[in-house]
Amino acid sequence: APSAPPPTSSTVVPPSLPPYFIKGSIIQLADGELKRVEDLKTEDFIQSAEISSELKIDSSTVERIEGSHTSPNFAVVQFSVGEHRAQVSVEVLVEYPFFVFGQGWSSCCPDRTTQLLELPCTKLSVGDVCISLTLKNLR
């Protein structure tokens, strides 16, 4: 009998690119500082999360990247999230950027990201550790 999908939680990111990923977009950090999206560093996210009373940075390691059944414009990225290595899959546009620790913006198709958003971007690969958020009180 065909097996059911593994018990992962799945989050579908809206099928449009949010405006804040466009090069030059102004981002406000938790301490009020304003930075352009392309100038953000790993420390900006970490420090903002430390200030936040609700949000916590988690390390999400890319475990698998595959094409979506929905559309060739989409990819399914499977992450191992946090210390418990919970499996989470997200379906995103191939140009959707993720922030990789110590590296910066990366996407499944960096050429398209750069073309559409002008956001400097590298190729997202299996083993990359991305920044993600969870609630501090989520256990």
Partner: peptide, 25 residues
């Protein structure tokens, strides 16, 4: 320098995917 009045300003957490694993215990 950044001029906040003429452009929209987005909160930092908008940029980060919210990956909240479901706990099954």
């Amino acid at each position: 320098n950044v001029e906040p009045r003429s452009v929209p300003v987005f909160p930092w957490h908008s940029l980060v995917p919210f990956l909240a694993p479901t706990q099954s215990d």
